[in-house]
Design a protein around this nucleic acid. Structure first.
Length: 285
DNA sequence: GCTCATGTTCCCCT
DNA sequence: CAGGGGAACATGAG
């Protein structure tokens, strides 16, 4: 199903578009959620809801299957919004809010087609939109307005795509812990997850356990540029880069090595997550 | 059977 | 209070 561009393509008579065809392998960091947002904007905005099916009511928050159907029937999808790993879309004033946690995706199918892991399905006047999730950790909320959306998401820092170099410096200045845990803190900067941060730090040649507030000006420059480059590349690809030129492309190998210098990668827990880095190039600050 | 997994939340500890 | 560490959540892969 992959076409190498991250863009969906038609697949014979089963015309579903979900950016990947995968499910368990989807990495719901900023780039993946941005892909879902673009799918909504391209296929779902302007469509009207005919009905709602909820194969797994456990994942529905703030309403019931019946309540969701009553609230949305006959209403029209508006423009989607993403902030960090959160995604929401107006439906005639109401808001549907999606979060994927560790797995999940959105799929647009026309003609309609069902899938084993469909949890909430919006039957549209043309096609269906399905929230899919294998591990059932994510949720779908119905909110009455934008204010309620903010309550659901909780406090979020600026989206990682919109943090400038000076903003980054300000955000990190007051931080006492490690650089990696700061970058993954959604209240500080929204959208970066474990794999994006490992790629960013590797590209910036900074150790994940570096003290967040102790970066020198040159290191801040490198970090800011690495965030921009990794996000642009991963959004373009539609997923977190995992090719041979990225550190996360090494993780599945028996003996992961640095794609730049060939040194055996080091790993350990930083910020509560398994982290990988090049011990030769990423020195602790 | 075992361990590990991209995220978040909660609880305990320093 | 800020941050670290661990467990929990649910399911599948290796």
């Amino acid at each position: 199903m992959r076409d190498g561009t991250g863009r969906p393509r038609m697949a014979g008579s089963n015309a579903c578009r979900d950016r990947s065809g995968r499910d368990t392998g989807v990495m719901p960091e900023l780039a993946d959620v941005e892909g879902h947002r673009r799918l909504l904007a391209a296929r779902v905005t302007g469509r009207t809801v005919d009905a709602v099916r909820v194969p797994d009511p456990d994942l529905l928050e703030g309403t019931t299957p019946q309540g969701l159907g009553r609230a949305l029937h006959g209403r029209r999808f508006g423009d989607p919004t993403r902030h960090g790993k959160w995604l929401w879309v107006a439906v005639d004033g109401r808001q549907i809010v999606f979060h994927f946690r560790m797995t999940g995706s959105l799929a647009y199918c026309n003609p309609p087609a069902s899938h084993d892991h469909d949890r909430v399905v919006f039957v549209l006047d043309r096609g269906t939109l399905a929230y899919r999730s294998v591990r059932r950790l994510g949720r779908v909320w119905l909110a009455s307005d934008e204010h309620q959306v903010a309550t659901i998401t909780g406090p979020l820092g600026p989206d990682a795509t919109e943090v400038g170099r000076e903003g980054l410096e300000r955000l990190l200045a007051g931080r006492r812990g490690s650089l990696k845990s700061a970058l993954m803190d959604q209240e500080l900067i929204a959208g970066l997850g474990n794999e994006l941060v490992d790629d960013i730090l590797w590209r910036a040649r900074l150790h994940p356990r570096s003290a967040a507030a102790d970066l020198e000006p040159g290191e801040l420059d490198l970090l800011h540029r690495a965030i921009g480059r990794v996000l642009r590349a991963s959004i373009r690809a539609g997923h977190v880069p995992a090719g041979p030129g990225w550190i996360n492309g090494q993780r599945a190998r028996d003996e992961p090595t640095c794609p730049r210098c060939g040194t055996a990668l080091a790993s350990g827990t930083v910020g509560g997550r398994t982290s990988w880095w090049c011990p030769a190039e990423q020195e602790a600050a």
